[in-house]
Simulated assay, not measured.
Amino acid sequence: MKTTSVLVTLCLYVLIEADRHEKIMCKPQSGFQLSRCDPTLSWNSDEYPITCLKTSAKDNFSNEEIRRLKRQMKSIQEEWEDMKSMLAEMRGERGTESDCARQGGLVRLEKCYTVPHLSSSYTTDYDEAAAECAKEGASLAEIHDRAQQDDLHKFALTKMPAGHAYVFVWVGMTYNPQSSMLLYKSGKEIRSSRLKWRPSNNPSTEQLHKNLSMMVNNHTSDFGLINQGKFPFLHGGICEKEI
């Protein structure tokens, strides 16, 4: 009993002193039995019937604190994943000039123009061409002036299937046959005469011919815009996205 009392007293003393530095834990040393210890402890002895060990970091926290920290870590991880998704989405919407070059695109006035799919046959209607652009975070290209039209025509020539002298590609703005105005997604309107139309009775005055395509032709005298409905099948579309 006396030995046990001394050991308890010693542990309490060590714990009190350790509070000034770090918390420790006392337990009987392996191989010793408290009931058979010498009641008199010699401070000069090489061995004592107790061992003092550091407590682990886990022991310094309650179970509730550990659960709270785990919840916080999970919340931080979820926020990080959301941020990565947002950055990836933003990158998909805007991209960079190097991204555009890797896609074989044309960089012009802070926009990237691509032709994601140009078929050798008539397989793509207006909605399908728009969907192809959307896969790249883009939309069908809108043409605002003759200089841009000439640049896009030259670019599309480099994408033509082998053996083809010309193709027809969808573009994004629409045409009003009544007012002869071109309408853009921004709501802006311009005179259709500012752009080059394909010769042979274009633009059409048919009221349902509001969607636009462009003929791309190796013979540069025979190329330009064509207004028609949404459902004719063409070779593909020209896409644009900001960079």
Rank of each mutant, 00 (worst) to 15 (best):
R36M: 06
L10Q: 13
L183T: 15
L182E: 03
M181S: 07
K74Q: 08
K154Q: 12
G172K: 06
D150T: 14
H164D: 09
A101H: 15
A156P: 03
E110H: 13
D125Y: 06
G31T: 08
H21G: 00
F155K: 10
H21Q: 08
G163A: 01
E89D: 07
P116N: 08
L212H: 05
W170F: 06
L109A: 13
H209L: 02
M214A: 07
F168H: 10
Y113M: 05
E189A: 13
S120V: 08
K74D: 07
F32I: 06
C112E: 00
I66K: 14
R36N: 11
L12A: 14
C100N: 05
M173V: 02
N202T: 01
L53W: 09
S192R: 05
E132W: 04
V6A: 15
Q33K: 15
R20F: 12
R102P: 01
Q29M: 07
L87K: 15
I190G: 02
R91E: 12
K241Y: 09
E65G: 12
E97R: 12
L15H: 10
L69P: 00
A88I: 08
I76H: 04
G187L: 00
L10S: 14
R102F: 03
T40L: 12
S62R: 06
N176P: 14
V169I: 07
I143E: 01
V171F: 04
L157W: 01
D46L: 10
D46I: 12
F61L: 10
L10E: 14
G31H: 08
C133I: 00
S35V: 10
I143M: 00
P232Y: 02
S120H: 12
L53Q: 13
Y48T: 13
N202A: 01
H219F: 09
S121A: 12
R146E: 06
H164N: 14
E110Y: 12
S75E: 03
G31S: 08
M214E: 04
C133F: 00
E79S: 07
R102K: 12
L106Y: 09
Y126I: 00
Y184K: 04
D127V: 06
H144G: 00
A130H: 05
Y175G: 05
C37H: 04
Y13W: 07
F155Q: 10
K111V: 02
D59R: 15
V216W: 00
L15Y: 14
N211L: 01
S35Y: 04
S200M: 06
E142R: 09
S5V: 12
Y122I: 02
G172F: 01
A57W: 03
D151V: 02
V167K: 05
E93Y: 15
A129P: 07
S62P: 04
